[in-house]
């Protein structure tokens, strides 16, 4: 298991390659990448704040639970912070399991929990001002299925 919280960009292809290559025990590798989206037009950047220390602990706990529940062979979580322009990758998760059902479910679980239980906050900056992104009820509701 690897957890990285970083300001620097990451290379999706290189990360996926490094995670997926050379395994003989995993029949399935699933990756998800989150990208900064310009939802209303005119987004200059997304500023991502986090809680150093707690962020790493919270993600490690979520990842450990995913590994235990779906018997994962490995998992990777990368999450960036700082100012990010539209189109830039914010985060990625990768899961490796014997079969695809486990790898997909664990990746979805990781995403649902990272969204609402890892201490990150997003602020959208446009030409006309800045707004903190509000948590959505649907995101909280998504946790209940697990």
């Amino acid at each position: 298991m690897a957890v990285r919280v970083q300001a620097e960009p990451f290379d999706i292809g290189a990360e996926t390659g490094a995670f997926a290559t050379g395994r003989t025990d995993a029949g399935a590798v699933v990756t998800f990448t989150g990208v900064v989206r310009d939802t209303r037009g005119g987004l200059q950047r997304m500023e991502i704040e986090h809680y150093p220390g707690m962020t790493e602990r919270a993600i490690a706990a979520i990842a450990a639970e995913a590994i235990a529940r779906w018997n994962l062979i490995d998992c990777l979580v990368i999450h960036r912070y700082g100012p990010l322009p539209p189109g830039e990758p914010i985060m990625m998760v990768a899961t490796a399991a014997a079969h695809r059902a486990e790898a997909f479910a664990a990746a979805e679980f990781l995403m649902d929990y990272l969204k609402s239980r890892a201490p990150f906050w997003k602020k959208e900056v446009t030409a006309t001002g800045e707004d903190w992104v509000a948590a959505r009820d649907e995101d909280e509701a998504a946790l209940r299925r697990w």
Binding site: H50, Y51, I90, K115, S116, P119, F120, W121, A134, A135
Partner: peptide, 10 residues
């Protein structure tokens, strides 16, 4: 002790 709004990661 840390105070913050609901989290919006991912």
């Amino acid at each position: 002790v840390a105070f913050f709004p609901p989290m919006t990661g991912g």
